[in-house]
């Protein structure tokens, strides 16, 4: 009797093990219809870059927001900003960095801005939002047979349905008003020395404005000095300002700053020496403001 009990238990365990092998290795649950939230992080980066490239072409901020929501980032602005910095560090193309930074900046401000384009002309406005971009899926798929349910306007978590329900109501088109002449040169409109011991020593702060004095994100700034060159972009610190960028100057080094390839170089920029406490001195900073002409 006791032996039968052991046999039962052994058979049960063996069966359990066989079941696990079948469930985990032979025929595991397959998610073939996954959602973007489950993508590997590098693929999410590529998705964000594509969203930014699309946004730079269409200036459709609502559509870009809906698409970014699909990736499930807690803070899309932060995710874009961090990605722009990663791209900068990895030597990605300036155009793609500029697109990502500009999208982060526009998301933060909530206003679609005009970007300088390669062709120099504003591009087409995007049409109505597509069904896929209107779907908000806050959770991972619960069923491989889940069907898409597009709810336009307010993203809503949707449950599985037996048949697709598509409500294709066009979203309002953004009113795109060109605010500047794309590719117009920038001009230095103000330069001031900053003596503030609370700031990082040698901090060069740069602000870029468009012709209507709105801050511009995604503007490339080229800083050169004897034996070196650095490229930075505005918009990577939207927590400070959309058109802001900064750089740490070294003592005794003369820098030349120019905006993109279109601006006139501003030479002979150096960190000022500021009087500090107890007759000590410290390295001050500069604040340069460039405006598109």
């Amino acid at each position: 009797m006791k032996r039968d009990g052991w046999m039962w238990l052994l058979a049960l365990l063996a069966g359990f093990g066989l079941g696990l092998v079948y469930a985990w290795m032979v025929a595991p649950v397959r998610y073939v219809n996954t959602v973007p939230t489950t993508l590997r992080s590098d693929f999410k980066d590529q998705f964000r870059a594509a969203i930014a490239a699309s946004y730079s072409a269409t200036h459709n901020l609502d559509r870009a927001k809906a698409r970014l929501a699909l990736l499930g980032d807690a803070d899309p602005v932060q995710a874009l900003t961090a990605q722009a910095q990663r791209m900068l560090a990895s030597g990605a193309s300036f155009d793609s960095i500029r697109q990502v930074a500009a999208l982060a900046s526009d998301l933060k401000s909530g206003v679609a801005s005009a970007l300088p384009t390669a062709t120099g002309t504003p591009t087409a406005i995007a049409p109505a939002i597509s069904p896929a971009a209107a779907i908000e899926t806050a959770t991972a798929p619960t069923s491989a047979s889940e069907t898409p349910t597009a709810v336009n306007g307010s993203p809503t978590a949707v449950a599985s349905t037996s048949a697709p329900q598509i409500f294709d109501t066009p979203t309002p088109r953004p009113t795109y008003t060109p605010t500047s002449t794309p590719g117009a040169p920038f001009k230095l409109v103000s330069q001031e020395s900053i003596c503030n011991p609370d700031l990082t020593d040698g901090l060069m702060q740069i602000t870029t404005l468009d012709s209507t004095r709105h801050q511009m994100a995604g503007v490339e700034i080229i800083i050169t000095w004897s034996g070196g060159e650095e490229h930075i972009f505005t918009g990577l610190k939207p927590e400070i300002a959309n058109g802001y960028a900064d750089y740490i100057m070294q003592s005794g080094v003369s820098y030349t700053v120019r905006i993109d390839d279109s601006g006139s170089p501003v030479p002979n920029l150096a960190a000022p020496t500021c009087p500090g406490a107890n007759n000590q001195t410290y390295l001050g900073g500069l604040h340069l403001t460039f405006q598109e002409q």
Binding site: V32, F43, Q46, A50, S54, S56, A57, L70, S130, I135
Partner: peptide, 24 residues
């Protein structure tokens, strides 16, 4: 997961992004 496993409508939306950028 990889993009190849995405549901068809998500794949199509990504391709639409590429198409929008290509148009420009």
């Amino acid at each position: 997961t990889t993009p190849a496993s995405l549901r068809a409508d998500y794949r199509a939306d990504y391709v639409l992004m590429v198409a929008e950028a290509y148009h420009a």
